[in-house]
Amino acid sequence: MIVESLKEGLRGGEREGRCALLSASLLSVSVYASGMAFEISLTATFVPLLVTKSRSLKLLKAFLPFYILFAVTAFFVGITALKSLLAFLAIISAGSLVFSSQPSEIIGALKFFKFPEKLVSLLQIALSILPVIVSDFENVKNIYCRSYYRLLKAFVSTAILRAVSFSESLYSKNFRYKAAGKTRKPGKADYLLLVVSIFVLIYAMSLEVST
């Protein structure tokens, strides 16, 4: 379930890259700026759910084991752990906004915001490898469904071989740390997302100031 959720969650969407990236950053900063306030964490979780038409829920599902861990901790530690759990959910959910856009638009957005091209190109490669690794995991899981030890061995050795092969391919393709991204004019929904994110951040900061 985790693997399928991750793969589905990583499928690109319709949002404009720059708006998606900015909104994801603003919502994440809001959670931190508000000192993990409940209302901000909940807003930062639900805004992406609305924008991605519940697709971010799939990405959230992929991190289920971590929530269980937080929930168990919360049972013993109390309110602080519960706050951390919600903040964790909010940050994953806000991050999933990045995947509500096409990967090439996110690359375009990073270039637009003058991130170093070397970093952007490596991010592009990492994003492209992820589905291959996920698909390897699915294949290995289907073969060794009854033996966790063998599954792990096969997956790890496959991943190592894949890493070596990918690096050979980058050499063969004359990789010079250049990335190709695209940008387009944002739509009304993209601007609306940005405005909501800015409001959340302002409210989060006002909460922090008032306390």
């Binding site: 690109g12 096409q102 090439s104 592009q124 492209s128 490898i129 291959v132 391919s169 393709k173």
Partner: peptide, 13 residues
């Protein structure tokens, strides 16, 4: 161009 095309992937699109 390598034997296994999956290992040549550098982009999602």
């Amino acid at each position: 161009v390598k034997q296994n095309p999956e290992e040549m992937i550098t982009s999602t699109e």
